[in-house]
Write a protein that binds this DNA or RNA. Structure first.
Lengths: 239, 239
DNA sequence: ATTTATAATGAAGATTGCTCATTATCGACA
DNA sequence: TGTCGATAATGAGCAATCTTCATTATAAAT
């Protein structure tokens, strides 16, 4: 019993060092993949920059792909945490959605090379469904899903789309939008794109001027008020 | 003069053979990249299946990446031609847009491995802008752009989005939608997704039955006005 | 038929992912 | 504190693959 415990605590310190080294490797790999992309990043240099031998990397990761997966995983963890934190600090559905859009866009644009590696693994894994990265992606989009569901039931988000389609529109649009904005680098495009995206998803406030729906409502209201006046007159005659 | 001409025609037959061989290599490479993806496809086997030596491939293409670019280019050429043909056969904006969506989704889902290679080149090229693939992508989305512009001026497509944002939403949404549909392979999802996408972009005809908000409001207004009229009549009788 | 330019070859070089026999390190225990 | 065993780390070498280039083959021109 005591023997087992000491063994555990002893191996734990070793473990801690091991895990620190693992983190160091992932951090170095993250930088390199971000700078050069997957193909041009070599295990040899990851090892060199991490201060270990080539072979040591393979004590921690099955192969180069596994290193890249760990890098993407660390990206998702941060992305998800930041997304949730941002959502928690805001109250209205529109603000939350807008934050998620900006947050995602900025990250996709800055860490593009990291995300570029994803398609490589997704279908390489026999069943992506169930894989670690699939779970992380799921956790990330769940932050959006919760906001979307709230928005739909509150009437702030259009409810004529299924949730999965809405989600794919939201994130897919940003993927392409980010690409376009990176290619033609015009200031102000980010806000413009987010506005456009919100316009698609968020239901406009009827009080807002210029919207077709608002105009219709105004017209309807006038007609109803006219009808009410007629009724009032009629009632007056009755009296 | 005559000498030059014979030289040209002579070199032309040679050229023709050369170009046939180039096409053969691209065709073989297309199959292999589609089956196995970029990394697991070797130049050696492309050469073998094409009936040439390894080195011969490098007479036609600078390197493996250039082979892959040629493959993607051939994909874009077909995609663009089919898209334009389909659009030409249809008349209404909604039909055309729906066709483009289905066409794109089917191709993205079937030839995913080919498109997966794109991100690899895009930013590897010093300026993607101006590259061959950029031009081909541009030609392809131009088919959409023309339909979208027509639709916007005709009032069939919402005009509160800029064209580039609309385009990125359209294609980006499909990229993600395709991925989702491939992962969870449920029948009927394709039509469902296209419906959802159309709902976002195409302006509903107010005259169409079942269009919710506007029609409902109109109906309610009519009923209220009718009620007002009955009250008026009743008041008249009273008097 | 000879010459010359073009096309093709495939062995060798270079890079890089990955393995494994060997060495080093660290904690436990007497 | 010194020894031992398990765990961790090493890096030379293997294997796979992209790419080059000296050599050979082919086809057109004269």
């Amino acid at each position: 019993m005591r023997k087992a415990q000491t063994a555990v605590s002893a191996s734990k310190t070793r473990r801690e060092r091991v895990e620190l080294k693992e983190e160091a490797i992932v951090d170095v790999a993250y930088e390199m993949f971000l700078e050069r992309g997957y193909a041009k990043t070599t295990i040899a240099e990851i090892a060199r920059r991490s201060g270990v031998a080539d072979g040591t990397v393979y004590l921690y990761f099955q192969n180069k792909e596994a290193v890249a997966r760990a890098v993407v995983a660390s990206f998702y963890i941060r992305l998800t945490r930041q997304a949730q934190e941002g959502v928690d600090e805001l109250t209205s559905i529109a603000d939350r959605l807008r934050f998620l859009a900006r947050h995602h866009l900025e990250n996709v644009m800055n860490e593009r090379r990291i995300l570029e590696m994803l398609p490589f693994f997704e279908f390489a894994v026999e069943s992506y469904d169930g894989s670690e990265l699939f779970q992380m992606n799921k956790a990330y989009v769940t932050v959006f899903d919760r906001v979307a569901k709230d928005g739909i039931s509150a009437g702030d988000i259009r409810k004529d789309l299924s949730l999965w389609a809405l989600r794919d529109v939201f994130f897919g649009a940003m993927e392409y939008g980010a690409r376009t904005m990176l290619i033609k680098n015009r200031p102000g495009d980010l806000d413009h794109f987010i506005d456009n995206l919100m316009r698609l998803v968020v239901i406009k406030n009827a009080a807002a001027a210029g919207s077709d729906a608002a105009a219709q409502l105004a017209s309807i209201t006038q007609r109803l008020e006219a009808a009410a006046s007629r009724i009032e007159k009629a009632a007056g005659k009755i009296r």
